[in-house]
């Protein structure tokens, strides 16, 4: 059973009477535990592809099966339920709720599921990312790297089967990036989660088992990392 299956996925936007195809007939399948990177230049359609895979948006044609659930026919609220149950997210700009403390941010996915002991689980996760003492801080009181670590803790809170990361190091300096990336892969390995990474950082992409390159909305290569040319 595949964890993510993408079939002939296309996305077209209508703008002032003209249609703009940003994703054209993309297909791939991921097995549980896979690590996977989507790389490509700005505007190539990689973020659109991530959004469609995670059920954040609807495709113009083609299908996405997440844990064998076909997302295309579900309402927005139904897709939200799927995300809450199976999916974790890491964003380039962290996307922490500014009015919640670090601990509360990590608790949100657990509380949405109605889980008991959300605070304890969240505290453990914060400790795992090295922020055990910072739980009561608000996002604005944390550095970029710390915020991304809180975001990592939140992403793993609901023990997702699939983790989507959109340029996770895009807003971080080199040293901080390295720490966050190490942590991301460690947590991923421990939890056995499937990782889908969108990046234009080829070095980061090279740490995954499989890389697809997109340009102009179409997949131009699908390969093992050692085949990706760095630089």
């Amino acid at each position: 059973m595949s964890i993510l299956r993408v079939e002939n996925l296309s996305k077209t936007y209508q703008s002032r009477g003209r249609s703009l195809t940003v994703l054209d007939n993309v297909s791939f399948t991921l097995q549980p535990g896979d690590t996977f990177a989507i790389v490509g230049p700005s505007g190539s359609g990689k973020t659109t592809l991530l959004g469609l895979c995670a059920g954040l948006d609807r495709a113009s044609s083609g299908s996405v099966y997440l844990n064998e659930i076909q997302l295309d026919n579900l309402s927005e609220d139904q897709r939200a339920a799927v995300r809450n149950q199976y999916v974790g997210f890491i964003f380039q700009n962290f996307q922490l709720l500014p009015t919640l403390t670090a601990l509360e941010n990590v608790m949100v996915p657990l509380e949405l599921r109605g889980e008991k002991g959300a605070a304890r689980t969240a505290q453990e996760l914060l400790e795992r990312v090295g922020l055990g003492q910072r739980g009561h801080h608000y996002p604005t009181q944390l550095s970029g790297g710390e915020q991304q670590r809180v975001s990592l803790a939140r992403a793993f809170a609901n023990r997702p089967k699939l983790l989507f990361a959109d340029e996770p190091t895009g807003n971080l300096d080199t040293d901080t990036s390295a720490t966050v990336v190490d942590l991301l892969f460690e947590l991923n390995r421990e939890a056995g989660t499937t990782l889908v990474l969108v990046t234009h950082d080829l070095e980061l992409a090279s740490r995954t088992q499989r890389v697809i390159r997109i340009k102009g909305g179409t997949v131009i290569s699908d390969s093992r990392p050692e085949q990706v040319t760095v630089g």
């Binding site: 299908s63 099966y65 844990n67 064998e68 659930i69 076909q70 026919n73 579900l74 609220d77 139904q78 339920a81 799927v82 809450n84 149950q85 199976y86 509380e111 949405l112 599921r113 109605g114």
Partner: peptide, 22 residues
Amino acid sequence: TSYTTSTQDRPLVKAPKTDPNW
């Protein structure tokens, strides 16, 4: 609400049971 896969009729996803106090 429960949602089914395209191929099978067994429910895979249930709407989360959020605590109303949340």
